[in-house]
Amino acid sequence: MAKRKPTILSTETIYPTASIVFQADADILDFSGHFNNFPILPGVTQIDWALHFAVELLKTPSAFKGMEVIKFQEPILPDSTLCLSLSWDEEKQKLTFKYSSTREQDDIIHSSGKMKLGAPSE
């Protein structure tokens, strides 16, 4: 079976926020073919993972209803160690996410965004 999720190193959940530290392993299927000589983690995968972990850790609704803001600032490379920060606004039904890492003592923001969630039947 193809590997689709990262290796989780740690999680911390203090509702309505969560923080996941993980390894974006080079053998994750999504790296293959995106791009052949310079693999990066696709944006759609980053959105998928944010939703997946929000449902798992924050018990958010599971249906994606759209993006409000999204910025891809720095590519996520194979075998990177990252932190995914999640914040759930239940009243507005909005999830805020940010992928970040540290490189040579500098904080790097890879991507961030806000997505609208809801029940699958809405």
Rank of each mutant, 00 (worst) to 15 (best):
G43N: 05
P75C: 02
I76K: 00
T45E: 04
I28Y: 08
D48A: 10
P42Q: 00
D89C: 10
S32L: 07
A119R: 14
T45R: 01
K92D: 11
L82A: 08
Y99F: 14
F38R: 03
I70P: 07
R103Y: 07
H52W: 11
A2Y: 15
S80C: 10
T13P: 08
K116L: 13
R103C: 03
Y15S: 12
T11V: 13
I70N: 05
G33F: 01
S87Y: 04
W88T: 11
P42C: 02
Q73P: 05
L82D: 01
H34S: 01
V55Y: 05
L86P: 02
T13R: 11
V55N: 09
L117G: 10
I8F: 09
D30E: 09
K114L: 11
Q73I: 06
N37M: 03
S80W: 04
K5H: 12
H110D: 07
I108D: 05
I28V: 11
T17M: 14
L84K: 00
E104V: 08
G43M: 02
G43R: 00
H52Y: 15
Q23C: 10
Q93S: 14
E91R: 15
S62M: 15
L9H: 13
E104P: 09
D89T: 02
F72T: 11
T102G: 02
S80H: 13
V69A: 08
A54M: 12
K59D: 15
A26V: 11
F22N: 01
D48H: 03
D106V: 06
V55D: 04
E122V: 09
A18C: 06
L57K: 09
L86Y: 03
T96V: 07
S32Y: 03
F22T: 02
K92N: 12
P75Q: 02
D27T: 04
S10R: 10
K116E: 05
K5N: 13
P39I: 01
T96M: 10
A26R: 13
T60Q: 04
F53V: 04
N36P: 13
L82S: 05
P6W: 06
E104K: 14
A2E: 15
D106T: 11
I28Q: 14
C83N: 09
I40P: 02
T17S: 14
S62Y: 08
F38Q: 06
L84T: 00
K3C: 15
M115S: 08
A24H: 04
A54T: 12
K65N: 07
